[in-house]
Simulated assay, not measured.
Amino acid sequence: MGEPLNRVVQLSKYGGPECLRIVELPTPTADAGEVRVRLLASSINYTETLIRRHLYPQTAAYRVPFVMGYDIVGEIDEIGPGVSGFAIGDRVADMTVTGSNAAYRVLKANDLTHVPADVDPAEAATLILSWTTAYQMLHRSGRAARGQRVLMHGAGGAVGQALLSLAKLAGIEAWGAAHGRYAALICELGGHPIDYDKEDFARVLPGGFDIVFDGIGEDAYRHSFAALKPGGLLVAIGYSAGAEAKQGMLRALANIARMYLWGLMPRGKRTRFYSINAMRARHPEWFKQDLGYLFQLLSERRISPSVARRISFDEVPEAHRQLEAGGLQGKIVLCPKERE
């Protein structure tokens, strides 16, 4: 008998969740420098709804159909020639952007981070994109120091929740801006809640914030820039407001360019755009180091990532609908062996 077929979530065309198809493809084999993993967990991220809608710059040139899946925790079941440091049965993780909503996936051995055997694969998967993004924004891009005051927009989302938790761990005072229903959660994570519907975040802290992390990009980041103290830093990480308003990608990129121009004005304030993929390309060793540190924190139970639901392949389209509707307080994670 040959290899089993590989069940995957495939994007048949750009558009809504109905464009996602569950199909069976030939199972890949590991080539030189590669390993094949059996999927244990792959988190479903809001970023993937942008990929699906053709609003994500990094995948804008991709031609459909292709397999979805931004990250993966898997168990090695095949090792290609020339690979050392890994064994059959090892648990590993990688951030792939696409291709990991699949029962089997081939990965480059040099890109992998070991996953401790004592951690839950679903919890580990939540760390790959959202928590590593939060950690690198806080410590690599923002270089936040103990005692500083920072503001996180969209604090009820996955990255926001992670940043509040990591800020508390590092002795950084954090405010979380979100809609009022997230206030209790923000307090639980150690942050000070700011209700978008009732408060002007630019006036909450007299003198302004040391750092503002903005993953929304509303009004081309103008209001976030105003919330900074002199010499403060705006770290922009996305443009979900533009995506929700169905603005085109060129408009979103123009807003980012405008943010950089504001940073050149003589106000003593600075701007920086953070991309986890761009930082990984420049500093691949940082990505593995930071993700490995987060896995260590998880193993020691010093952090507690939230898994809202564990789903099967057939439930992925509905998970995209739930992400776009908002209101989730944890990650949806594809865990096929648990659910099928």
Rank of each mutant, 00 (worst) to 15 (best):
L11V: 14
S12L: 10
K13M: 14
Y14G: 03
G16L: 07
L20N: 01
L25P: 06
P26A: 12
T29Y: 01
T29R: 11
A30W: 04
D31L: 09
L40W: 03
S42R: 01
S42W: 02
L50W: 01
Y56P: 02
Y56N: 00
P57A: 09
A60F: 14
V67D: 04
V67Q: 02
V67G: 06
M68S: 11
M68R: 02
G69S: 08
D71T: 12
V73Q: 03
V73M: 02
G74R: 02
G74T: 12
I76C: 14
P81A: 09
R91K: 08
T98Q: 06
S100V: 04
S100Q: 03
N101M: 11
Y104H: 05
R105P: 02
L107Q: 08
T113V: 15
V115N: 00
A117L: 13
D118I: 14
V119A: 02
A122V: 07
I128C: 09
L129G: 03
S130Y: 06
T133L: 04
L138Y: 09
R146C: 09
M152L: 13
G154K: 02
G154P: 04
A155L: 02
A155I: 07
G156K: 01
G156C: 08
G156E: 06
G157Y: 05
G160M: 02
A162W: 01
A167M: 05
K168S: 13
K168G: 15
E173Y: 09
W175I: 00
H179K: 12
G180C: 09
R181F: 15
R181N: 15
Y182M: 11
A184T: 15
G191H: 05
G191R: 01
H192S: 12
P193F: 11
D197R: 06
A202R: 15
A202H: 11
L205H: 13
G207V: 06
V212C: 10
V212T: 11
G215R: 00
D219K: 04
D219N: 11
D219Y: 02
A220L: 03
R222Q: 06
H223F: 00
L228P: 10
L228Y: 11
L228T: 10
G232L: 08
G232W: 04
I237M: 13
A241L: 03
A243H: 14
E244N: 13
G248N: 14
M249F: 04
M249Y: 00
L250D: 14
R251G: 09
R251Q: 09
R251P: 00
R251M: 06
A252K: 01
A254W: 08
I256N: 01
I256C: 03
R258T: 11
M259G: 05
L261M: 05
L264T: 14
M265A: 15
T271W: 07
F273L: 03
Y274N: 05
Y274G: 07
I276M: 14
N277Y: 12
F287H: 12
D290H: 14
G292N: 07
L294K: 05
Q296N: 15
I303D: 01
I303F: 10
S304H: 15
P305V: 05
A308V: 02
R309V: 11
F313D: 03
F313P: 00
E315F: 12
Q322I: 08
K331V: 07
I332M: 01
P336M: 00
E338W: 00
